[in-house]
Design a protein around this nucleic acid. Structure first.
Lengths: 235, 235
DNA sequence: ATAATAACAGAACAAATGTTCACTGTCAAG
DNA sequence: CTTGACAGTGAACATTTGTTCTGTTATTAT
């Protein structure tokens, strides 16, 4: 039999390759006996023998007495698996999933996710290409709402549309914002303009008249509209 | 105890979160007892009970009688997690680029890509998550147009909006289509209804009146509207 | 109230799986 | 040739771990 050289023997490589392939395929690591079967090693003790060596060499991590407790650190080529994760993350990065946290209904306050809101809360999310979003916005401040009813038609937003919002509590001129009008008990989407002490809320539909509010304190900005999506054909 | 809602209960979410975190941290999935310990579930049978439900819902895959044989398919947000190798390719696949071939202007015929049109012709394209599009549509029949002017406001489409169209020459009832009205020299977006020999073109804005056309031969369907996108903040 | 169903508990069980150990074979150096 | 480190075998063993089962508690519907 060949003596232990400095590097990896064919069996070492075979085991590492199998570990990677198996984890890839099944989503969890193989057992010692499965490794043996697929690498022509008939004895479980020999598999353990090799696994110990691979662990010493830093290719894997193991937790003793734990079934399938093998963590592949780097593959046989020596390149760290983490780089792969990064590549995937980068590709994923082009596509962001925005939580769909609720509905906009004119007569009731709009749901806004709390700052500590759980990643797993939303029943569903919508996927958006990053290129459609303002590049600067941090993703965790974005959330989406589905519009219910025809109350937003003067904002050119229809029943069933999805609006992507950014959490802000102050609007700048010219931005479209979601506003809770305390005196009317109403949520509305309007272009926001603050000019000489009063607030003008301009509908997106140029044929509609603006709302002028003399007392800015009663307008409550819920968020800024970033994107509106209307699916005519349901996916 | 709370009844099973349509979506995921807090425990479902907790388990999914733990599965993801554990796998990320250790490199292999947790055992049933470990899941129980970290999610305040005292009985292994209850953990199994939830795992069965998660499997039925498609969030995980399991191999029976296999220790830690859990494969996390998608997280609670519903986005695909897959294993790292496929993730990059899959993520790419989730994103489609649709050619932006021109503008819609009310007074002139709408540009429609010819059938042999080169995929690389358009100066620019827009990236759309596949999940937003009708799953059935072949991608090569989709194209996008930018709306110029306020002429489409009765279709709830604003100046600057992007409409994604599908090439069709015949519309079915209830579809929103782009139509060239020969007698008016005008392009318009309307809901299409053909009923007892005549065509009714219904604006999306429910407060507007429909156009009735007695002679169907003068309506020329340019395409079907699949998606409308409005970017409030330019990227 | 009552029945039905979902949610949960805990123990007992069986199977999967890692570990240990005594033993055999190989090869190179003294 | 002998020795010793390395490589490998196979079985016995001990844990870990998934499964099943009986039963209890809550929630909803009738």
């Amino acid at each position: 039999m060949a003596r232990r050289r400095s590097g990896l023997s064919p069996r070492h490589k075979k085991i590492l390759a199998f570990l990677e392939e198996y984890q890839q395929d099944k989503g969890y690591p193989p057992s010692i006996r499965e490794i043996g079967d697929h690498t022509q090693i008939s004895s479980t003790s020999v598999v353990k023998y090799y696994l110990n060596q691979l662990e010493e060499m830093g290719y894997i991590e193991r937790r003793s007495n734990v079934s399938r407790g093998i963590n592949l650190i780097k593959n046989a080529g020596g390149s760290i698996l983490q780089t792969m994760k990064n590549a995937a993350a980068q590709a994923m990065d082009q596509l962001v999933t925005i939580p769909l946290v609720g509905n906009i209904v004119a007569g009731e306050p709009m749901p806004v996710p709390s700052s500590d809101f759980s990643y797993y809360d939303p029943e569903s999310g919508i996927d958006i290409a990053r290129s459609l979003l303002p590049s600067s916005d941090p993703l965790d401040q974005l959330y989406a709402l589905r519009v219910h009813g025809d109350s937003m038609i003067d904002a050119m937003v229809n029943d069933g549309d999805i609006v992507v919002m950014k959490k802000v509590d102050q609007a700048r001129n010219g931005e479209m914002v979601a506003i809770w009008l305390a005196d009317r008990d109403e949520t509305t989407l309007k272009y926001f303009y603050q000019e000489n002490g009063r607030v003008r809320l301009q509908p997106a539909n140029p044929s509609m008249q603006p709302i002028i509010i003399e007392d800015p304190s009663i307008v409550e900005v819920q968020g800024k509209v970033v994107l509106v999506i209307r699916q005519l054909e349901k996916a």
